[in-house]
Design a protein around this nucleic acid. Sequence first.
DNA 1: GAGCACTGC
Length: 698
Amino acid sequence: MGIAINYVIFARRRQKIEQHRKSLPIAAVEKKLLEEVSNNDILIIVGETGSGKTTQLPQYLFNGGFCRNGGTIGITQPRRVAAVTVAKRVAEECGVTLGQKVGYAVRFEDETSSSTRIKYMTDGLLLREALLDPYLSRYSVIIVDEAHERTVHTDVLLGLLKRVQKTRLQGAMVNSDHTKAENGRLFENENDHQSNSVLKNCRGKKLSPLKLIIMSASLDAQIFSEYFGGARAVHVQGRQYPVDMLYTHQPETDYLDAALITIFQIHLEEGPGDILVFLTGQEEIESIERLVQERLPKLPESKRKLSVVSIFASLPSEKQMKVFMPAPVGFRKVILATNIAETSVTIPGIKYVIDPGMVKVRTYDASTGIEPLIIVKTSKAQALQRSGRAGREGPGKCYRLYPENEFYKLKDSTTPEIKRCNLSNVILQLKALGIDDIIGFDFIEEPDRMAIIKSMELLFLLGALTDESKLSEPVGHQMARLPLDPIYSKSLIVASQLNCLEEMLIVVALLSVESIFYAPREKLEESRLALRSFSSAEGDHLTLLNVYRASDEFLEKSKLVSSKEKAEKNLRKWCKENFINSRSLKHARDIHSQIRRNVEQMGLRVSSCGDDMLPFHQCLAASFFLNAALKQPDGTYRALSSGLMVQIHPSSVLFRMKPECIIFDELVRTNKNYIRNVSRIDYLWLAELAPQFYALQE
DNA sequence: GAGCACTGC
């Protein structure tokens, strides 16, 4: 009886899934798409939101025989959550256990097996895979999804895939001819012993042609098509509800005030439905929240049913969750959000979107190496993405707080990340793939020449590149294998020589994540007091180490008496009491175990310097030497490499102490040039430990 | 004596 009922439920569920699949816009063109993929080695698919391309196309290809010879279909996503949730959904649609036919792989999580044929992953992870398998030989098809977002990973991946595809096509011809592939080289330096070993692994295997599919949600198919030599582009219809666009008559001088007025206008004049407001940062969000709360009591009592919630990335997860909870009965919800609500999270119930048209972006100044955040106008594509958030569940309205003619003056799309970021990691990865001519590399959009040169200089000074700009052996190759900023990778290599790798692994993991300290404004004093027990007079690096060790000790003790789940819950409580951000700490723990595994595999010696922290600080000097600063008579500091005048950030344990010579982790420009995560070093160490930079200056 | 958007390996 029970089995029969279960079967009925199961059958209904399958039927529902099938109905849903057939109702998607892409279902109407399944056969056509299969033909297109068969006939074209590269295909561009433009599909708007709701077309079903991400979940359906891989299934069509699987059923269409594109995995026949044991090949895998790989689908890349810019974000982890997308890779994970889509994989789960597709496994369910296929009626299989996740990790079997359908799986996913993201950093720290691998839900695949040898039987996986449809594999969702992040684009960054596929790039890492390429280091081990430069021809990506396990894949018969690679689909690059959300290519319009143009993350730095996507851009590098596109260049690599273009090359791999060409090589595999030639390799396949060669395999059938039994002659040598003269032009079928991915590498320029096949004689290098490192890449040679990789090549040998690949030669045994038969290279088969690779199908490439680039999927984009916006109308810029042209760029991708041109890049791939006039590749064929097909459009797939999306499915969205209509969104009414409303503009202001005149430009607004104060977009925050305009946003505030619009919130109340919608609340008082429009039908039910929640409001999503796009703001540029935490400060704006908090000030609008305060202003709404202040004005609410002035409304007639029956009109006060407005509940304000906010979301931004650095908000602790439990507070983020509040935006997903429905407002109390009869209340309208206003969500104040950064562009986290543009793509990363989807909040249900939104009918109204308010878009002031501004966004905070990170930029990169190659001459100073500083990456300041600035507020700029959104692009057209971004404005469209924002307005689309109003039409997910029904018809909606979008209030753009600028005149309509201003919209047409906006840039079509946001500047690709590769044009505004530090390129040292990109260069390291390309070099590790045997691509030595960075300036000649076929990027879809060229990075600035100056940015390339600056990053090469940095890699050279770190010892990752030889005089001929090749990856050095072993340092350069080791650095390329580590999933870290090059300076951090270098510090691990130095630490193994100075016998303090145990300590440096922890510190590097902590420096790699968002600040682990959580100090809410209203509890500033309390949080400072909590921090005191961990503080080290030597600086922030040791302080970080103390916090990590204390948390680790607490967790280990907790595990002795309770289950793993309970122990982790206890740790979160411990974090709260000590004003530590548990999400950041968890992230650091994950990175720590990954890089520890990495260095062990590389054969580096993991040992501890015990209580003598001298080698640890020497290691900091030897690897962060470009971030050294000297005290000036007035108590400020001069950064030695850039000559910039900087100040220790007030959050540093050395803020009052002001030692003569310090090294720092990063320089942030707000009102002043602040340096963060600072430690005291001996000035004389610089010339001794970093002669490649300091000996020349004497 | 300060406030930093969002991702990713």
